[in-house]
Amino acid sequence: MTSRTPQPARIRTRVTVPLRFGDGYRVDADVVTFHDLADGAEHLALGLGDPGASTTPLVRLHSECLTGDVFGSARCDCGPQLREAVERIAERGGYLLYLRQEGRGIGLYNKLDAYALQDRGLDTYAANAALGLPEDGRDYTAAAQMLQTLGAPRIDLLSNNPDKAGQLAALGITVAERVPTGVHASPSNLRYLRTKATGTPLTLGHGLELLSEGA
């Protein structure tokens, strides 16, 4: 895979934001914004714990999910993954990159259109295809820029998704280890998680292990 290291971004501002989750967990985040990101989107980096404590900080690339992160939708595992990632990164030191890539890059309205097709029996990837949309339209060039700007060209990546590690490596970021997240299964999202675990020729699966219907 050919490396194509992007031009670095510039830090726009830093501000401390106290985070509080519904279960009572609290932590302070050093929130960083940027100039010159490749896609022009308003992505955020949240520094948690002591990111400089290790030469390989723990990093999560978390794609925005309004329905899961904000409203607690049980149709996906995004909200629980966000909660898990913040605590694990804070304990070790690193960054959570909150990327404005709703619906794996297709946008909020298209994501809800895909949900309607899923209610008729299509899986998440087939629903996107039926709408003429990519299975996964995310590009992590801006994430690589953010990591280079933050002085984190070598990381441990908190993710079940091999595509994230592959794209970062192609963009000049060294992924020393891919650290799996937990499996946040419920009756409402089990089919969605199984689809991710099975994968497609493009996505290659997320390495999830769903042991039973009640997992």
Rank of each mutant, 00 (worst) to 15 (best):
V179G: 10
G121M: 12
A165F: 02
Y125D: 01
L58A: 08
L190A: 14
A90C: 08
I155T: 04
G121I: 11
Q118E: 14
R178S: 09
L122H: 11
L211C: 06
D123C: 06
T141Y: 08
G205W: 08
R12D: 10
E84Q: 09
G68V: 00
R26E: 15
I173W: 00
L150N: 02
V179S: 09
Y109K: 09
T181V: 11
L44K: 12
A170L: 05
R75E: 07
I155K: 06
R178D: 01
A165L: 03
L211N: 11
I106V: 12
V31G: 04
L190V: 13
G103N: 09
R92I: 09
M1E: 13
F71V: 03
A144S: 04
T67V: 09
A38T: 06
N161Q: 05
R120G: 06
D163M: 14
H184L: 09
P153A: 10
P6Q: 08
S63W: 04
Y109L: 13
D28M: 02
L211G: 11
A53S: 14
V15T: 15
L117I: 12
R10H: 09
R100D: 14
D69N: 01
D123F: 07
L211M: 08
P187K: 13
E91W: 02
V32I: 12
G166R: 15
D139F: 11
T33V: 04
D50L: 01
L204A: 14
R20Q: 14
D69V: 00
D139H: 13
E102H: 05
A215W: 14
G52F: 11
N160V: 07
L157E: 07
P57Y: 05
G105V: 03
T174H: 09
A165I: 06
Q148D: 10
R138D: 13
T16K: 11
S73E: 02
T141G: 10
G47N: 00
A116G: 10
G49H: 05
A114R: 04
H35D: 15
G24K: 11
R88V: 13
L150P: 02
G132I: 02
A85V: 01
G205K: 05
T5V: 14
G52S: 15
L171A: 09
D113L: 15
I155L: 07
Y95I: 03
E209C: 12
R104K: 13
R75F: 04
L117K: 12
N160H: 03
L122V: 11
A38V: 08
R75G: 02
A130F: 03
G22W: 05
R92M: 10
G22E: 12
S159E: 09
L122Q: 10
A90M: 09
Q101P: 01
A74V: 06
L150Y: 06
A127H: 12
S188C: 08
G105I: 01
S63P: 08
L202H: 12
Q167M: 13
E84F: 05
Y140G: 01
R120D: 11
R92P: 08
A29M: 01
A165R: 14
Y109T: 12
E102A: 05
E87I: 00
V70R: 11
G24W: 10
S188F: 13
G199F: 01
